[in-house]
Simulated scan of single mutants.
Amino acid sequence: MAGTEDKEWFYMSLGHRRGPVTRENLSKMLLSEELFVESTQVWRDGMKEWEGLADCKAFASTLKKVRETAQKTEANVRHTRSSEAGDEDLTCRGASRALFNLFFYIGWVIPILIGVIILTELQVHQLLDPKTVIHNDLQYIIPIGLLLLVSCQIAVSRMRHAGYPAWLGATIFIPVWNLFVLFICLLAPRNFRIQKKLGKAAIGYLVLLLVMFALPFSGLLTGVTPQSANIFSLTDGISDSYKYQTSYSARINKNQSKSADAEARRKAMEESHENEGREGALRKRTNQQ
């Protein structure tokens, strides 16, 4: 009879009235999240009206446990998110989407320019024969080779930043397949492999890509055609501009003149030493006679 009397609580949740149940059973339902504090009202004999569970003193101890459990759950969620963010920081390090786009449209000139500078200065300082450069096509091999090396490296870094294996970046020069690599490098945000969301910024990058590819065909760039805008012509243009700005011909002629003068002085000194030697030997024979 006592067990029946203990079932004195009625509860209303989501518009449905149920009960009677014991206080213990109602507490278990709260702790197991079958009921939620915010959406549950309770009533028992002697109460004037239904009362929100959060305001009912009879369940104060249960509500304390519910809050403690919620706090622990929230702390675990924050810890999990922090761990995931930490893992993402470790595994998704590399060149950002913005940096790769900057290199793709503008920055590629820098490796070519560095290659041109190295090659030109080696010739000016007579460490490399200009005829050897032309005969072996070094004016293309060194700048373009440096460009390919830097492009591969930044693509490797970009793929890692997007959450993909870094080695995929090294396949950027494989025809057809490189369309996928370029898509990731140009448009995918950080950790795209997991998140699978391009984001709104990708639209801007895509529009920029289409505009840049359409410009050579539009006729807006005077003197620039798809045929003239090849890597060899661009390398020649950068090389000619650098040589003109740095007075390449005048400097190389000056250094060659200095080398010729130095060689002439060296030969004159050698001849002088030889003459002195012969004169010394002649005087020695004369004295002996």
Rank of each mutant, 00 (worst) to 15 (best):
Q71W: 06
S249L: 12
S272I: 09
S82P: 03
K267G: 05
T171V: 09
Q288W: 07
L63F: 01
L168P: 00
H79T: 13
Q288F: 07
L31C: 11
M159D: 03
A260H: 09
K28V: 12
G277I: 05
T246W: 03
L198F: 12
V21Q: 06
Y205V: 02
V150M: 09
L215I: 14
Y242S: 00
V224N: 03
F10H: 12
I142T: 05
I184L: 03
A95Q: 12
F192K: 00
F213L: 12
I141S: 13
A188S: 07
A166E: 07
F36V: 15
N76S: 10
T22Y: 06
F173V: 04
K243I: 03
T4E: 14
A170I: 00
C92S: 08
S82L: 11
P189T: 05
A201Q: 13
E5M: 13
H125T: 08
L35I: 02
F100C: 10
N287A: 15
K197I: 10
A166S: 12
L206I: 09
S32A: 07
W177K: 06
D55P: 02
E38G: 14
S83G: 02
K28Y: 09
Q123T: 05
V42T: 01
I110L: 13
E34V: 11
V224S: 04
L127I: 08
S241F: 13
K72F: 05
V66T: 01
K267I: 15
D137E: 14
R251G: 00
I231G: 03
R67Q: 14
K254Q: 15
L282K: 14
R67L: 11
G94L: 04
V224M: 06
G86Y: 09
R283G: 10
E274P: 03
V176S: 09
R251L: 02
V211W: 05
I112A: 03
I106R: 09
N287M: 15
E121M: 10
L31H: 12
W108D: 07
F192G: 00
V211I: 15
A75I: 02
L182T: 05
T225V: 10
A85V: 04
V77D: 14
K64N: 11
T62A: 04
Y248F: 13
R67P: 00
Y140T: 00
R23A: 14
L63Y: 01
A95N: 13
L234M: 14
M212E: 08
I144H: 05
Y140D: 00
D6I: 11
T4H: 11
L26G: 04
A268Y: 07
T69K: 15
E121R: 08
A2Q: 14
Y242E: 00
K258P: 00
A264Y: 05
L282C: 08
G46N: 07
H79Y: 12
I117H: 03
L119F: 03
A201F: 11
V156A: 10
A70Y: 06
R18C: 07
K267S: 13
K196W: 09
G94Y: 03
S218C: 05
I117G: 01
N191D: 15
D137H: 15
M47I: 11
V176M: 09
M12W: 05
P111Y: 01
Q126H: 13
I112G: 01
R18F: 08
Q256H: 12
N253E: 14
C185P: 02
P165L: 06
R190D: 02
Y205A: 08
S83I: 10
